[in-house]
């Protein structure tokens, strides 16, 4: 309660770096049921709308010489398609729409999350865990369907010395099951940490209104926000890219389990 009072009073800084991650209902103040439209709904819908505008509406012209939006969509298409084909091979191209969906959802959610006052769905472990574990289950089922028991060859290093093979197999199995964990925590952790750091610096910015140290602290914190923001723009893209390319690698393992 004291913190609340401090935030609204004139003296004191308001440190609420995690408030931006709160899930709140869009309408009213009721409990959050599974169907309640929340800020999660809003920002996910905005991500979907951006994707639809760029890729479905923007490509409508089918122009031989593309318009700006059209060429944006085509560049993203070429980028992800090449990634899927290079990493997962030719038969991986069948899963291109799936990989593209992952990439575009994460990228646009990350980018929209950088708007001041926005909410970032990809900073939530619930979201990234569904993405990571969902893809993990999909890839594992796909591996067994495509290769049957052969899929277990993924864990059996046939070129290692015979004595080491069972040990390596155990390690491989463990690392296989750690994959979705690291896959999802990496994304949520990166996005959350960046946003929280930015918020902490932002909390220091009004220092000049409170004390004389503010003469130094305020410009430094504003510069720091600017720098972190630039870094976060980079991170927003890189994390989407990393998530996608790892998805491609896992897809490759499912399609071609032989080493």
């Amino acid at each position: 309660m004291a913190g609340e009072a401090q935030a609204h009073g004139e003296g004191g800084l308001a440190f609420h770096p995690l408030d931006q991650f709160k899930v709140t209902p869009l309408f009213g103040d009721g409990p959050i049921e599974w169907y309640t439209p929340t800020n999660v709904t809003l920002w996910m819908a905005l991500a979907a709308i951006v994707i639809i505008l760029v890729f479905a509406v923007g490509s409508k012209g089918r122009a031989l010489i593309p318009s700006r939006v059209q060429s944006l969509g085509e560049m993203a298409y070429g980028f992800v398609y090449k990634m899927v084909e290079d990493v997962a091979g030719h038969d991986g191209a069948k899963f291109f729409p799936l990989i593209m969906t992952l990439f575009l959802f994460i990228l646009s959610a990350n980018m929209l999350g950088l708007l001041p006052g926005s909410f970032t769905p990809t900073s939530h472990i619930a979201v990234t865990a569904i993405l990571g574990f969902g893809f993990f289950i999909f890839v594992t089922v796909l591996g067994f369907v495509k290769n049957g028991a052969h899929f277990l060859g993924l864990f059996w290093m046939s070129d290692a010395p015979l004595i080491l093979r069972p040990i390596i197999a155990v390690i491989e199995v463990i690392s296989y099951f750690v994959r979705p964990v690291s896959h999802s925590i990496r994304l949520a952790g990166n996005i959350m940490a960046g946003h929280a750091v930015m918020k902490v610096f932002a909390a220091f910015a009004p220092m000049i209104l409170i004390s004389a140290i503010g003469v130094v602290v305020t410009p430094v914190s504003i510069l720091a926000i600017t720098a972190i923001y630039a870094l976060e723009v980079l991170v927003a893209f890189i994390q989407a890219y990393v998530f996608t390319i790892l998805a491609c690698v896992y897809l490759k393992d499912a399609l071609h389990p032989g080493h």
């Binding site: 995690l18 408030d19 991650f21 709160k22 899930v23 409990p31 959050i32 049921e33 599974w34 169907y35 309640t36 929340t38 999660v40 709904t41 996910m44 769905p121 900073s123 939530h124 472990i125 619930a126 979201v127 569904i130 993405l131 949520a188 959350m192």
Partner: peptide, 16 residues
């Protein structure tokens, strides 16, 4: 952390 507030998980997962 709001991230660990499990009561919001069904909501997030559904909308995701």
């Amino acid at each position: 952390m709001p991230q660990l507030d499990f009561s919001t998980f069904p909501n997030q997962i559904f909308w995701l």
